[in-house]
Design a protein around this nucleic acid. Structure first.
Lengths: 223, 223
DNA sequence: GATAACTATCACACTCTTATCATGATGGTT
DNA sequence: AACCATCATGATAAGAGTGTGATAGTTATC
């Protein structure tokens, strides 16, 4: 599950992100309206969390902009005011739900879950690829019914692959989404962790290479 | 599934209702004890959620009134106090489970599920995980039939785990729901109490680690 | 009001994860 | 065949995260 959080205040964005990551989502952050629209075009998100107060473009503007091309992806708006005006303009622009600041993280979590359940892309259900099974609630991945002993990063990486089976994932993309890093040519964390994950699979009895290397381009989890 | 929510404060009733509806239940609201009894007579409910503090008739009164004619329908009580008095009068009046305000919606959701899952014959909504047995009405947890001598916090923590077996629970979530605290990096209450609970289990003769540590993510009660 | 039990915090030891480095292997290209 | 870019590998240091024992503050109990 990939979420886009649009919030310009770092103080607010980071804790929210943290809380959502703990719920098992991958969270990208955009800090203004333009960046939000750019990211939305490039990536596929399951849900967008949108602050109304934004620099460059307001949240409602971003919302209607998104709705021009996409009517499915649920949008959750964060508003500082409880005013009726905000709600109405927001509703008109195509948001699916509202949350008035300040809110408890638990509340946000519940709304997000509810919105994702409603959406056609489905809920945080169990994902199966080949003989691998991912349980998002338990944060476990098992191979032939046996739990893989994965560390947090290993789990995040493998789950990222499992949500995108057969898809070629560049090291940049992995760096960005699994590590929150920008391009950094001198690090080889990705290689290292792909190796760790492969080792786990090997230790679990898998002999094939489930994760294929595509030289110069990235990696792919073969279904 | 038809639920009856008895709560006089609209501010509380509506969000609770919303959360339950999202879980897929039909929810009627009664805003005082008399209305509750009237509705209960007319309709058939699968579960009643009952606030103790009510106008006209108190929750415990309503509860014992219901129990005069109906012994099957599970009753979940919402109480503002964790006091023993409340518990005892509540138990006498025939409630099946308790929830102390303030509570998280997720918590309510879990209890409701547990109560509805109960066997049709027995009234107790007993939760079993591995060799652990939780009796919500008695507020006791036993291991291989022997009561665990738990303190209040230990019980709350372990029960939170037992309502969510196999699920990974972050320290934040536990802090928030078991302790009503927001994120607080400098406290390690959770670690400490996990340790206390583990010690209780060890003293009861358990050698395995029922509560698994997932470094960087949280804890999990393995089923 | 005294005592006991519980709860929460602290400091510290310790473990494991993480990321990086240096180096060896591999594949593609000329 | 040699070269270069890219990837795999093993080792390791730093640091975050967790376990532990002791202890102070708080609440219940008699």
């Amino acid at each position: 599950m990939q979420l886009l959080l649009v919030e310009d205040q770092k103080r607010l964005a980071m804790p929210i992100r943290r809380s959502l990551v703990e719920d098992g989502y991958m969270v990208d952050i955009a800090s203004d309206g333009q960046e939000a629209l750019d990211k939305f075009e490039i990536n596929k998100y399951d849900l967008v969390i949108l602050d109304v107060m934004l620099p460059v473009r307001s949240g409602t503007q971003v919302c209607s902009e998104i709705r021009k091309t996409d009517t499915d992806t649920p949008i959750l708006m964060l508003t500082a005011l409880d005013g009726v005006d905000d709600r109405i303009t927001g509703l008109d622009s195509g948001a699916d739900d509202y949350l008035v600041k300040p809110f408890a993280f638990g509340e946000l979590s519940a709304r997000v879950r509810a919105l994702l359940r409603r959406s056609p892309s489905g809920r945080a259900a169990i994902v199966t690829v080949d003989e691998l099974t991912l349980d998002p609630a338990a944060k476990t991945i098992s191979y032939r019914g046996k739990f893989l002993p994965l560390t947090a990063k290993e789990y995040t990486l493998l789950s990222y692959f499992m949500y995108r089976p057969g898809q070629l994932l560049s090291k940049n993309e992995l760096l960005e989404h699994v590590w929150d890093m920008n391009y950094d040519g001198l690090s080889n964390v990705v290689e290292t962790y792909v190796r760790y994950v492969r080792r786990r699979l090997r230790e679990a009895g898998e002999t094939r290479e489930l994760i294929t290397t595509v030289r110069g381009l990235g990696y792919r989890l073969d279904p």
